[in-house]
Design a binder for these strands. Structure first.
Lengths: 344, 344
DNA sequence: GCAACATCTGTAAACGATTACAGCCGCTGG
DNA sequence: CCAGCGGCTGTAATCGTTTACAGATGTTGC
């Protein structure tokens, strides 16, 4: 044996005194004479044989591996996706390759290209911005891809998106309905898709509620707890009675800043975030947030990908790319209880 | 082309009018005539050739993939490990397969066995308990394994452990030094290695500080925010002046319960957790915690694994398994500032 | 102009599995 | 007793790469 001593189908064949074809057949449940079957089974067991997945992959052109390219595993939103995806793929007998892109576009494109190396059977890509280069690369991808994020319609591939416009509006409307009138906004970087859309939702809901859009009540910054803290500091002079944040991290930071100033939440100011990550429950007081369905998006993306892979053999009809949207859901917690005096 | 239209080394050879050997050589940087080199390069570019990693793996017996078997990606501690591992493997040109075991021993053993399928070149295993079956499987693993966790000495494989005994002691001593005398403990399941060790550290530090071990001040439960809340409720009648928790999740839950009772942190009670995960910073007030070096453990595990893999060819000397321990580090935050009246 | 040598190139054999095909065997029925 | 048939089995090709070896080509020096 030229390899590391690992038994192969050949060693089994020799030991059992049969051909490699028979070994393969027995081990894969094809018919064989009782005698042969037994000898092969025994030899395999004695040698502790484990089939070489690489060789098998080469033969039948599939690896039973899927890749998930995620921008930042530090963010609980993506953790939720990883979990959901992992659960689906595991159940379907696929392994999961985790690729961290660090939100670098060049890296995302590299992953897309590397689909051609046949290392995995499909890819779930979660880009934070979508450039023309992305669209081009998606259109000519060497295998099935599902994008988690918002592609222009009609997209080149399957995609799952969150409705963050509606989600943001849900939160703002809720703040309005609980009596808030000076609703500040801490937004993420507006050149990202989520950053931009949440912005839109904020403005739309303000308009709908008949509230003016006051630039003094808006701050844009990067996502992060520390950034939320700093942003809240900058907003305080404008005397908001509520702060809506594009993200739970920002909301948590903002809440800390407010509490540090001796303000009471929700008595003096309400705080709401987005994503409904574990951070929202972890906050004090627990934060109202909007669940954009991260886990659900992961689940759906994984399913769509598997659907593409499990086309019954000899079916050349490739269905057109589909897009699905997960509905947002408002999760009300203590941080947005109505102000004690509704007329304040 | 019998496959999905993917160009292979054969298509390039045909197009460039050379043999496959030449193509391979050119593409792998071996010497070749200028003319040949150019023709091959051009043909490859025109066809958009990407080498088939599966075939290559089969040939040279390595996949450049590593597996990380993690109990629960929901836990920030493991997220930190995944991140650190991913960073190291990526830099070394390895892909990372993430396998979620859901802390099921049977599943951990299955991963260990599946090392034999040559899907990945090595495994980082993070078991939550270690049984004899684990030890046996480790000893006969089909490839290099690094365990993150505490193996009996001398271990069958490389391992990286945290010193949670010392870590817990650090926290308890800190509480003592800031004037606390009735230090309660919310522990994790004591049949897990971390659960057990943190327990030991708590007791040791109490003894060292000359404090009695009062069973009324101790509660054991599962890890989780909700569990922390419930546990704190049960502790209150015993009138502790500090709560040390085996985990940030527990600490966060406990803090919530205390605040909900109108108690002030740290004025009335100090709270400290362990792991120094993002939850600790997210808490209000920000929680003192003990960094057990999750990221560092991930990093070291990855490095040790790579060390095993990159043995200069033809070196049959396999070094004995090594064990390394990451030192704990106390991170003091607002939740354990000294009580206002030091004599209370 | 030719020998000696260096450099490049092609042929073919691996890697470990699956599988089409053909051959062999034993059985059944006439 | 033999044709025909069905079930097992073995041989060999295949997946896409890398690489040892041998053969071809070119270069240099005399």
């Amino acid at each position: 044996m030229s390899n590391g001593g690992q038994p192969t189908i050949v060693s089994i064949a020799r030991r059992a005194g049969v051909s490699t074809a028979s070994v393969s057949r027995v081990l894969n449940g094809q018919g064989a004479r009782r005698d042969t079957t037994e000898r092969v089974r025994r030899a395999a067991a004695e040698l502790g044989y484990v089939p070489n997945a690489v060789a098998r992959s080469l033969k039948d052109g599939r690896t039973r591996q899927l890749t998930f390219a995620v921008p930042d595993i530090g963010n609980p939103v993506y953790v939720a996706m990883v979990r959901a995806i992992q659960a689906v793929t595991k159940a379907a007998g696929y392994r999961l390759l985790l690729h961290s892109t660090d939100a670098v576009a060049e890296d995302e494109l590299a992953v897309l290209r590397s689909l051609g190396d046949r290392t995995s059977d499909g890819l779930i890509l979660c880009p934070i911005r979508i450039t023309d280069a992305h669209l081009a690369a998606l259109a000519s991808a060497a295998g099935p891809v599902v994008v988690i994020g918002s592609l222009p319609e009609p997209g080149p591939v399957d995609s799952v998106r969150a409705d963050s416009v509606a989600g943001a509006a849900l939160a703002v409307r809720h703040l309005y309905e609980t009596g808030r009138r000076r609703i500040a906004y801490i937004g993420g970087p507006s050149d990202t898709v989520p950053g931009h859309n949440r912005d839109l939702g904020y403005r739309a809901a303000l308009a709908e509620c008949g509230l003016p859009h006051d630039p003094d009540l808006v701050v844009h910054t990067d996502f992060g707890i520390e950034q939320g803290r700093a942003a809240a500091e900058r907003l305080l002079p404008a005397r908001p009675d509520a702060v809506f944040c594009a993200n739970d991290q920002l909301a948590l930071g903002a809440a800390h800043a407010l509490l540090a100033h001796g303000l009471r939440i929700p008595h003096d100011l309400a705080v709401a975030g987005m994503d409904d990550s574990t951070l929202a429950q972890a906050g004090w007081p627990p934060l109202t947030s909007v669940d954009l369905g991260s886990a659900e998006r992961g689940r759906r993306a994984a399913r769509m990908l598997l659907d593409r892979l499990e086309v019954p053999a000899g079916n050349p009809l490739v269905p057109a790319p589909r897009t699905t949207t997960t509905p947002p859901r408002l999760v009300v917690r203590a941080s947005t209880a109505p102000a004690t005096d509704p007329r304040r």
